[in-house]
Each structure stands twice: as structure tokens, then as C-alpha cells.
């Protein structure tokens, strides 16, 4: 599979077909998920309608973590096998992951204000997600910091692997420290501790976010590959020696054309 996908031309052909399908599915799933979670799902007996923030906050948090994992795995594949698409994929995914992390932090802050009475607390879960956001920013900055883009890609790949240390800290921060943030209630041993009427729209939203990520990733990868192709074409065009001045008749404004 990995080798079969290692052909950028094949990827371009496949993704050209996949992008419209995935986009429409993502739009459909997100529409159903948003309608269900904002209109149909019951309000919480304590939190009232505020609980609906969860349907954006929790999937965004899941995506923030899994996109980082994706970036790290793609970076490892790029470093070990020099897979030509893995580096493109990692670099394309990082800004999307940073955006999901930002959405997670922003909605969490909006949710914290009515529930905890504060926009922000320096709690282990919140702090570790903030560090994740900075890791994304560091990755993006490092990937673009070199004149030679492949050098930036490799340096950023090493950084992505170093940052993996943060993932288990985020996941287990609510169990290791006694925090204001609630412990895991969906992915826990013994099954989810959340009613099916809320779990169903949550999972649909998660599916919608995943599809959205897939679409954005493919579009960004296609753009990156096209950009690379354009660069190569321009370099090739530049490599043909330009006519030296003086050899050819110079046509200026006051040359009289017979």
C-alpha cells in the first residue's frame, strides 16, 4: 500500500476523483451532525444548552491529537523510507491540526466561562493542549525556515517525533493530576459513560471532522504537489540559456520598423 501510493502522479489521479466525493460526504455528515447536536439532542440536566459546545469541542480535541499522531507517523515514514508523499502529507496536515487545536482551545474557553466561571485555568489538560498548539506552530515555523525546502521537511520531521512525548501527557493528564477538566468519559475502560442520545451526535460530528480533515489534507497536498511541479517547470525554463544582449537586434521604442 505504502509503495503503491508512493507515486505522486497516481496520488494526483486518485485524489482528483476522491476530493469531490469526500467533500460532499463531509458536508452531509457535518450538516446532519450539527442539526442533531444543536437541535435534536437533549440539553444537559445541569449545564442546559451549554453542553452543545461539547459537540464541537470534543471532536476538535480528538482531531488535534490524532492529526499530530498522523504528522508524526508520516514524518517517521518520510525519514525512514524517504517516501516522497509522506513529507508532503506531514507538512500539509500540520496547519490543519493547528487549526483544530485552536478550535479546541477557543471552544473550551467559551465553555469554561459559564461552567467554571473562568476563561482559562492553568490546569494540566489545558496547559498540555496549549503546548501541543505551540508544537504545531514550531513545526510549521521550522518547516518553512530553510532556503532548501527538503531540509526544512526533514528537520520538522525530527521535531514532530520529539513532540510525540506530549501526546500521552495530554491523554492521561486528567488521570495523573487532579484537574478541573473532567476525566475521559467516552474512550474509557468499561465503555462510554455518556448517554446514547448524546453519544450518537458526538460520534457523527467526529466522523464529520475526520472527513473534513481528509478533504483539506488532499486539497493541500494537491496544492503542494502542483506548486512543486510549477517550481520545477520554472527552473527548467530558466535553465535554457537566455539570448545574450548584443547578439540579437535590440528592439527599442525608437527603432523604426520598415
Amino acid at each position: 500500500m505504502i509503495n503503491w501510493l508512493a507515486n505522486p502522479a497516481r496520488f494526483m489521479r486518485l485524489s482528483a476523483k476522491a476530493v469531490p466525493w469526500c467533500s460532499w460526504t463531509a458536508v452531509l455528515v457535518l450538516a446532519v451532525g450539527l442539526f442533531w447536536s444543536l437541535m435534536v439532542a437533549p440539553p444537559d440536566y445541569q449545564q442546559g444548552d451549554t453542553v452543545r459546545i461539547m459537540y464541537v469541542h470534543v471532536p476538535a480535541a480528538w482531531m488535534a491529537l490524532s492529526v499530530y499522531l498522523f504528522v508524526a507517523v508520516a514524518s517517521a515514514v518520510a525519514l525512514v523510507w524517504r517516501h516522497p508523499l509522506a513529507e508532503v502529507a506531514a507538512r500539509a496536515a500540520a496547519p490543519i491540526g493547528a487549526a483544530f487545536t485552536f478550535v479546541c482551545l477557543a471552544t473550551g474557553s467559551l465553555w469554561g466561562r459559564p461552567m467554571w466561571g473562568t476563561w482559562w485555568v492553568w490546569d494540566a489538560r489545558l496547559t498540555s493542549v496549549l503546548i501541543l498548539f505551540f508544537l504545531y506552530l514550531g513545526y510549521i515555523a521550522l518547516a518553512n525556515a530553510f532556503d532548501d525546502p527538503s531540509r526544512g521537511g526533514r528537520a520538522a520531521a525530527v521535531l514532530a517525533l520529539v513532540g510525540v512525548v506530549n501526546l500521552p501527557i495530554i491523554k492521561f493528564s486528567v488521570d495523573w493530576w487532579n484537574t478541573l477538566h473532567q476525566p475521559a468519559s467516552v474512550m474509557r475502560i468499561g465503555g462510554p459513560r455518556i448517554d446514547i442520545s448524546m453519544l450518537a451526535p458526538l460520534l457523527i460530528m467526529a466522523l464529520g471532522f475526520t472527513l473534513l480533515f481528509a478533504v483539506l489534507l488532499m486539497v493541500r497536498m494537491r496544492t503542494a504537489l502542483n506548486e512543486r511541479r510549477a517550481m520545477a517547470l520554472r527552473l527548467n525554463a530558466g535553465a535554457i540559456p537566455a539570448p545574450r544582449p548584443g547578439r540579437e537586434p535590440v528592439v527599442s521604442a525608437n527603432t523604426v520598423v520598415p
Partner: peptide
Amino acid sequence: SVAAALSLGARRQGVVLSLLVLPLYI
């Protein structure tokens, strides 16, 4: 040392270096 090695030869190395290393120093 990890951040210093990663940012070798980068443009505006100092800024990149601090962006990389400060989150890891937390």
C-alpha cells in the same frame, strides 16, 4: 541541544530556536 541542532542553518535561527525550545522547557 535538540532545538539547536534542528535549527542549524535556518533563516532567523534565533527566533525559530526560541519557538521550538520554549514549549519543551515547560
